[in-house]
Design a protein around this nucleic acid. Structure first.
Length: 511
RNA sequence: GCGGGAAUAGCUCAGUUGAUAGAGCAUUAGCCUUCCAAGCUAAGGGUCGCGGGUUUGAGUCCCGUUUCCCGCUCCA
């Protein structure tokens, strides 16, 4: 049932120009999507809501737009190079996945264990007169095992250096390494699992530099910490906010735009005094949750999910989850990252990255609270939370009950009939409002059909121009969710609409 | 990555034992002039995901491949 709704949502996104599969005319690209004419409006509105609520609302939060390309050492310092660069292999019978390098290291250990056993045995036999070095260089069993170790090790190191995955598999096959669970040697090919996409800068002739596409925007903030703090005369506590693309080469990317290999993040790193991080963690948890709830979806659409298993950099972490058609899913993460990142960069770049706190009269490495939200996931929650199929008395409708602030089109203006000067009147209304609101004009088909079309794309207001408008300058305004209509003066339209689509009224609800 | 299913017009789908590719909705133009879709007329739009094979002939049968969906796996 839920799957059904999700499928319909995906179809709806495509049919009305919210989200298209990437490169569709060439059969598409797995897990890559493009935002269409309405999708880009919704996405921009989401970003604006976030940006303003961070940067305008907090005088101690400033923005940043750092480059996607960064110095390769950044990713060594952050831990991404070591943590996510593994050759993986699957056993086809047990369906278990292993790191090929670990399997081979285990094999070497096995041989070393055999040698150690021989040595222990010999020690017992020869007692004090035992010469370990001499034994190791002459005993045929030890030598045989040592030869195997040398051979495996030599091939292993070379394969790793040359990134030769076929050779890794060959080692596993040659030495008949079996799956500990199934006991079988029925292996898949070895595949490199690189979390990070890489590319090259410079011509290959004079040795190009291998660089990565950033897997998170956070590091752009950390490497600019000193720049912003000094030039902006920022005093702790303060935050740096950034919106930007990030890239992760996920093995399995699925569930529409929920997990993509290219995605957009809205991250804010908040620098605090060591020891105060838990208070700030709590504070931002509340603030971020109220940001979500201000949009008006039901209370039970959201929940926190605290992490038991923490990442290498964190000492506290929680997710804000939204009730999707396929269950509660993470939309935003709030992490207490300690001083891990700044300390690491200090270590790798050799420059002091600290803050002199005049109140304490001492320097320290600030602690960091991070709030990180996926724009695409936020987009999906808005679509999933808004999509409704309603049964009416005589028929049914599909309506996107998007928060009016975020709706791609704010109002549609339509002449009741396309003659008697009504179209001109409608056009004049649009000309007056188009600089403040995204408007659509529609005169095609019956008025009811036009309302349905606007419902399907989430337009909160429809203004209908009838003959009375020509006499007394009034029109009807029809509300998407209730389908109720009011007759109002054309002069009041701007006021009525701006009140309901204002970001400001939402900001007032954020703690 | 493994296993299963699917792919025909913008959308939802039909297409018989293999023989000139269809419907509804949508779109465009016109008629009608109407406050909650589906009135009338006409038009445009598909080398049936892609590549091979079998066949006189393939949307249909076979093989491969790509993409999507479901489950498992993975997810700092």
């Amino acid at each position: 049932m839920a799957d059904d709704i999700f499928k319909k949502l995906i179809a709806h996104c495509k049919e009305y120009g919210f989200v298209f599969p990437s490169s569709e005319i060439y059969d598409g690209m797995g897990a890559v999507y493009d935002y269409g004419q309405l999708g880009v409006e919704l996405k921009n509105n989401i970003k604006r809501y976030w940006w303003e609520s961070m940067v305008l609302l907090h005088e101690n939060v400033v923005g940043l737009d750092s480059a996607i390309f960064m110095h390769p050492t950044v990713w060594k310092a952050s831990g991404h190079v070591d943590a996510f660069n593994d050759p993986l292999i699957d056993n086809k019978d047990s369906k278990k996945r292993y790191r090929a390098d670990v399997l081979i290291e285990d094999l070497i250990q096995k041989f070393e264990g055999k040698i150690a056993k021989e040595v222990t045995k010999a020690k017992k036999r020869f007692g004090d007169s035992f010469d370990e070095e001499q034994f190791k260089t002459t005993n045929p069993r030890v030598l045989a095992n040592q030869a195997k170790i040398d051979e495996v090790h030599g091939r292993f190191v070379k394969a790793l250096e040359e990134n030769d995955l076929a050779e890794l598999k060959a080692i596993i096959e040659d030495y008949e390494i079996a799956c500990p669970i199934s006991g079988s040697r029925n292996w898949t090919d070895v595949r490199q699992f690189n979390l990070m996409f890489s590319t090259e800068v410079g011509s290959t002739a004079d040795g190009a530099q291998k660089i990565f596409l950033r897997p998170e925007t956070a590091q752009g903030i950390f490497v600019n910490y000193l720049n912003v703090q000094k030039t902006g005369r920022m005093k702790i506590p303060f935050g740096i906010a950034q919106i930007g693309k990030a890239f992760r080469n996920e093995i399995v990317a699925r569930q529409f735009i929920f997990r993509m290999r290219e995605f957009e993040q809205m991250e804010m790193q908040f620098f605090v005094r060591p020891g105060s991080e838990m208070d700030w963690f709590k504070k931002w948890k509340e603030t971020r949750m109220s940001w979500h709830k201000a949009l008006g979806f039901s209370e039970d659409s959201y929940r926190f999910h605290d992490h038991d298993k923490l990442a290498h950099y964190a000492n506290a972490a929680t997710d804000i989850e939204f009730k999707m058609p396929f269950g509660f899913k993470e939309v935003e993460g709030i992490h207490s990252r300690t001083d891990f990142d700044l300390s690491q960069h200090e270590k790798y770049c050799g420059k002091k990255i600290q803050y002199f706190d005049p109140e304490l009269n001492k320097s320290y490495t600030p602690y960091v609270i991070e709030t990180s939200i996926g724009v695409d996931r936020m987009f999906l929650t808005m679509m999933a939370g808004s999509y409704c199929e309603e049964e009416l008395e005589k028929d049914s409708r599909v309506v996107l009950k998007l928060p009016p602030v975020l709706a791609p089109v704010k109002l549609a203006v339509m002449p009741l009939v396309k003659k008697d000067g009504l179209p001109d009147k409608a056009r004049a209304i649009i000309d007056n409002l188009k600089f403040d609101f995204n408007c659509q004009y529609d005169e095609k088909d019956s008025i009811g059909k036009r309302y349905r079309r606007q419902d399907a794309i989430g337009t909160p207001f429809c203004v209908t121009v009838d003959h009375q408008a020509l006499e007394d300058n009034t029109v009807t305004i029809r509300y998407r969710d209730t389908m109720e209509q009011e007759r109002v003066s054309i002069d009041d339209l701007h006021h009525i609409i701006s009140e309901k689509v204002s970001y400001k009224s939402l900001y007032a609800k954020i703690k």
